[in-house]
Design a protein around this nucleic acid. Structure first.
Length: 233
DNA sequence: GCGACAG
DNA sequence: ATCTTGTCGC
């Protein structure tokens, strides 16, 4: 999918303090309501590492959306590598993963109407998780699907598949804690960009098939973390 | 000052 | 995230 013309949405040589300042400037640009075109394709994005972390491997997959529900047909798969440029710092994940993620997305021929990202969206201390940051950059609707909590509080979630509770922080709802599989650790779903809380949750539910992760993220996950080196596609 | 802390 | 064996489920 095409990348937007270069914009001051990201910088690769920032100190932690500068990165935090940038997040505060970008957060207000995140759109929290639905501005989504009819969904035909949904992409999944995830990052993995090789060479003890020296190489970052980004994976992007595109699935054809079917009203009939999953399993969806995978129509594109891309793996893109580049040297790792920043360490992992809680709250600054997007600065470590977004560069490679953009590289993978730029190599997709299809432009999806929705992108699911492994990580938080709004459910971030400054409301700019990796899903939001990537969404801003690509100017495409995104939803964050994380496997654990970064911030916020929530009541206990029911143990049955489909049960969910709000994730809140500082008096506002920042996401949803969703039990995607009975008796399995819940998912933390939050809007990335151009999507509402309700729609973000619904799309994740609609993409659940038989595993803990929704299909877009699951497919990207397996590509990004394969221990042997998948070339491309 | 003491924890918590996406991937 | 990654390092790891066997094991349970579809």
């Amino acid at each position: 999918m095409p990348l937007l013309p270069p914009q001051p949405l990201h910088d690769w040589h920032l100190t932690p303090g500068e990165a935090v300042a940038l997040q505060k400037r970008l957060a207000p640009r995140v759109e929290r309501s639905d501005r989504i075109a009819p969904v035909r394709h949904i992409a999944g994005v995830d990052i993995g590492f090789e060479d003890s972390g020296a190489t970052t491997r980004a994976a992007a997959v595109v699935l054809k959306w079917r009203e009939a529900g999953p399993p969806f047909e995978v129509i594109e798969q891309v793996v893109y590598r580049e040297p790792t440029r920043m360490p992992y710092i809680p709250g600054l994940l997007s600065f470590r993963e977004t560069p490679a993620a953009l590289g993978a997305c730029a190599r997709l021929e299809t432009t999806p109407e929705l992108v699911m990202v492994d990580g938080q969206g709004l459910a971030h201390p400054r409301r700019l998780g990796v899903a939001s940051h990537l969404g801003l950059w690509l100017d495409v609707p995104t939803v964050g699907v994380a496997k654990s909590r970064l911030c916020g509080r929530h009541a206990e979630v029911g143990e049955t598949r489909g049960d969910s509770v709000w994730l809140e922080d500082k008096g506002e709802r920042i996401g949803t804690v969703l039990r995607s599989r009975t008796r399995v650790k819940p998912l933390y779903v939050s809007p990335g960009h151009r999507i509402s809380q309700a729609a973000a949750l619904e799309w994740v539910k609609r993409c659940l098939y038989r595993t803990k992760l929704p299909e877009p993220t699951r497919q990207a996950d397996r590509l990004a973390s394969r221990r042997d080196g998948p070339g491309r596609r």
